[in-house]
């Protein structure tokens, strides 16, 4: 064996040792389960029984006439729209203020705003349950203090018309800080000279925000938007499961909580996974649409 060949062989072995464990773990615990979502969705399979019957696309046909599924669809879309718009607006504005203005305690604000992001979804659910409690909650007692104690009590988690917005507030509370920190980072790389030039030409703060800051960090906004929407589908599930379990009467049921419920409470794995497939397709389609809609000629620094 020549020196070159031995070295070459060593290289192959080294590369294999380095990549194969990661590939195995990834395949077993991510790739295979993902493929399984699609496979199981075509079976009728309940409970722990070994009996699995292939039913083709029956589960999907059933889904289209399942009113509860459509309700969870509606709730998910509503949450995505509200939470995305409000979170993005708040994160961008606070980030712009914290990078552009000469303020005191900037570091303090940044540290505090990021706190919700390090808390478990269960912790956030517990905190908001305490805030929203109808008679002894922080929010209602605060409101009654301002209105002189006579205000009708809002059932933040009990009123079917209100509860979805209560969840939205918790989601926004959870997310703003993280995206603010991220935008602060990219905004601080915008050169000061651009703002100076704009000031000289008489552009005010608002104008600078829309004509300089936003276009220059647009690439960053685009990427975060896609990930934000995917993670919203996830976080809405985590919070709903711990806070309301989809109730009252399905008014906070979201995609994944309905999927989980079908799979476990109802023991119909096939049906549950059919929902999973649709959620998958939905989030991919949505990412695609967002990518298209937000396409701009990129501005290079």
């Amino acid at each position: 064996m020549t020196e070159f060949m031995r070295k070459h062989k060593g290289r192959r072995a080294f590369l294999s040792v380095c990549t194969i464990p990661a590939l195995i773990l990834f395949s077993v615990f991510m790739l295979y389960p993902t493929l399984n979502i699609f496979i199981i969705s075509m079976y009728k399979w309940g409970g722990y029984s070994q009996h699995r019957e292939f039913v083709g696309l029956d589960n999907f046909v059933k889904l289209f006439s399942d009113a509860k599924f459509w309700q969870s669809f509606q709730n998910t879309v509503l949450l995505i729209v509200i939470v995305t718009i409000v979170t993005m607006a708040m994160a961008l504005l606070t980030a712009a203020v914290l990078t552009r203005e000469k303020l005191r305690f900037k570091g303090f604000f940044r540290v505090v705003f990021y706190i919700p992001n390090i808390l478990s979804a269960v912790v956030i659910a517990a905190i908001f349950s305490a805030v929203y409690d109808p008679s002894r909650g922080l929010l209602n007692t605060l409101l009654s203090f301002f209105t002189g104690g006579s205000a009708g009590q809002v059932l933040w988690l009990g009123d079917q018309k209100v509860v979805i917005y209560s969840i939205a507030i918790a989601m926004i509370w959870q997310a703003v800080g993280y995206y603010m920190v991220m935008y602060t980072a990219s905004m601080s790389s915008v050169p000061e000279s651009m703002y100076e030039a704009a000031s000289l030409e008489g552009a005010g703060r608002v104008r600078q925000f829309f004509s300089i800051t936003i276009p220059l960090i647009w690439t960053n906004i685009r990427t975060t938007l896609t990930f934000f929407i995917i993670s919203s589908i996830n976080i809405s599930f985590l919070l709903v499961r711990a806070m309301t379990s989809g109730g009252p009467d399905g008014s906070t049921e979201v995609f994944l909580s309905y999927m989980y419920k079908q799979a476990y409470t109802n023991s119909s794995y096939g049906y549950g996974m059919a929902i999973g497939v649709l959620v998958f397709l939905f989030s991919f389609a949505l990412s695609g649409i967002i990518n298209l809609v937000t396409r701009r000629d990129s501005v290079d620094l």
């Binding site: 993902t34 199981i40 985590l238 799979a263 999973g276």
Partner: peptide, 10 residues
């Protein structure tokens, strides 16, 4: 892009 919440059941 694969969220753990999707694949927890499989």
């Amino acid at each position: 892009f694969i969220n753990v919440s999707y694949i927890v059941v499989p």
